[in-house]
Design a binder for these strands. Structure first.
Lengths: 337, 337
DNA sequence: CTGAAAGCGCTTACAG
DNA sequence: CTGAAAGCGCTTACAG
């Protein structure tokens, strides 16, 4: 098998020019159909494969997109961003692009060191996956290639971002509880920890307001410290009839705490949450939860970045992708009392 | 900010040739230290970034490695290969390489369609992550670039592979049970399903043989059908005092089955398993299990592929990476009876 | 120590 | 419909 078959090799073999070969293989005008077919056949036989580097150099695109993920979001039990990357990678293939993952270390983030992918012009744009230091983000925004933020947004609206509709998801989830007859509903999550939790809390709150239900501060439970480390959740003396938890893992922890305190789920207290990750299925009972539409988010982010690369510099702003409620057995109909 | 600063731009600005700029920036001989420093400074100021495509074309390397993962191994609850990819990607960066994930669809696998990364010469080699169809593998092996198999091996020894030491891990795990006084030890896993399970079974068996303990066929329990779908595990009338499960998830399922049958773990039956994934910690009690050394496996696979690309065509054969036993609370000392 | 020339493999703009 | 020329940005081998 010959190692490096080039267009010129094919051209020589067929006594045509390499220009004609290029046109034939790329389905461009300027070759007769007959010759085109012949060239394609010979190319196939000779095992011709295009040289991406040469093409890249010629037209100035690398056909690669960098996906920046802060390393702290890619730990052993956090597969969410890895799943997201997987979808991105898959969607990019459909555009003839490749996705290159870049794990951002805490150190590089602190020292504002941009990915080597940037310094080598190895990518045409970046999808930035996961909230990061503001100063670092500013640095990222200073690059002269397009970026799209994924699963978080910047305070300034000058850059596109694709996020889950946390607000609306929690709102729908709470509406569902209310339809099931619940009037006293708590929330579990540290409101000062992440933007997602805040939005979920506010969606929950809006639902309460809309139904003229009271938000009882004693039913707003903290689940983690400022650094994000989970803490023991303090169970109030008297329980509401339901809780909205900010994520499945916290729901899992909380249910185990409630069980130890002698409560039965969902008989004594209904629980709903967010993510539909593994914790939603291993909890007894299974959790009614909002599934994030990872695929749709990936598709949207990729579409935006490709558009920008193609030169369409329209600002898409902040786009929310709606999740779906997955119904399981953690909610019980509440009789009026 | 100027868009595309090239070496020539720097050269013109400084009244030297682009050859000199190239030498200076690449720390090659042939430039005075003084000039070198000046060039570097100017390059920095002008925001020069090397063009990977041009470099690639020149020296024939893409500085990319493809990582092929069969799509069925990258489902929502299977983050193992994604973790592995993440480590590969990280290790590659240290070699100035990038890892590009390619998800192999069942369809492409059936039709023996090679990754587009290959047809575009976009990668210098492939790490093949996860067992796949033999016919497809043959196709892969027919490519004219280096490959390394990761987490599985081929029946022929002509290609390098890096695997977990399943055999030795299960052997050590069983030895541990025996040291704890267990004499009747079962195994959970379909022996005809995957090579990993087989090897784990054989390691378990060797430990029994070495200690002159009987392998009771009634204590070898099936956990899945031929397609890999988990089935209800049939609990034997009389239990041995311990079981080696082929993975944490199965241990999780099995323990839940045993509990429902009224057994207490580890009092009535000790359990050990493999993987140290999320199931090892959510099981009550936590599982004593073998942790796969993902990082070391990634390092080894990357080292092999880079060596091969650099032209060292020494055959490394099949290399096993040892795991570590993580001790938790699923094993109880067994008093002699 | 410095630089002119050549070439990596492709594609576009232009001439015939 | 076909092809000669030029150029993308770099680096190596060679000449001075």
């Amino acid at each position: 098998m010959k190692k490096n078959v080039t267009m010129r090799d094919i051209a020589e073999k067929m006594n045509v020019s390499s220009v004609t070969v290029s046109k034939a293989l790329n389905d461009k005008d300027g070759v007769s159909d007959d010759l085109r077919e012949k060239i394609k056949t010979v190319a196939e036989t000779m095992g011709y494969r295009i040289n991406a580097a040469a093409k890249s150099m010629r037209d100035g695109y690398s056909y690669n997109i960098g996906v920046i993920i802060p390393e702290r979001f890619a730990g052993a039990n956090q597969s969410f961003y890895l799943q997201m990357y997987q979808h991105i990678s898959k969607v990019l293939e459909g555009y003839n692009y490749s996705g290159i993952m870049h794990l951002l270390t805490d150190e590089d983030e602190r020292n504002k060191r941009l990915p080597h992918l940037y310094y080598e012009k190895k990518v045409d744009g970046f999808i930035v996956l996961g909230q990061m230091d503001k100063e670092y983000l500013k640095e990222i925004k200073g690059m002269d290639i397009p970026i799209v933020l994924l699963d978080f947004y910047d305070e300034y609206d000058d850059v596109d971002s694709v996020i889950t509709d946390n607000f609306f998801g929690a709102y729908e989830l709470t509406n569902y509880l209310i339809r099931k007859g619940h009037q006293e509903i708590g929330f579990v999550g540290n409101l000062y920890s992440t933007s997602s939790i805040q939005d979920r809390f506010l969606g929950y709150y809006k639902s309460l307001l809309e139904h003229h239900l009271v938000m009882n501060p004693e039913y707003i439970l903290n689940d983690r410290d400022e650094k994000g480390t989970y803490i023991d959740i303090e169970v109030p003396k008297k329980l509401p009839t339901a809780f909205v938890c900010n994520c499945d893992q916290v729901a899992f922890n909380f249910i185990s705490t409630l069980k130890k305190a002698g409560y039965k789920i969902p008989e004594d207290c209904s629980i709903v949450s967010f993510d539909n990750d593994i914790y939603a299925t291993i909890t007894e009972p299974g959790l009614t939860t909002v599934e994030v539409n990872v695929e749709e988010m990936a598709k949207t982010a990729v579409r935006f970045i490709i558009e920008k690369i193609k030169g369409n510099d329209e600002n898409n702003g902040r786009v929310s992708v709606k999740g779906n409620i997955i119904y399981r057995d953690s909610v019980m109909e509440q009789k009026a009392r």
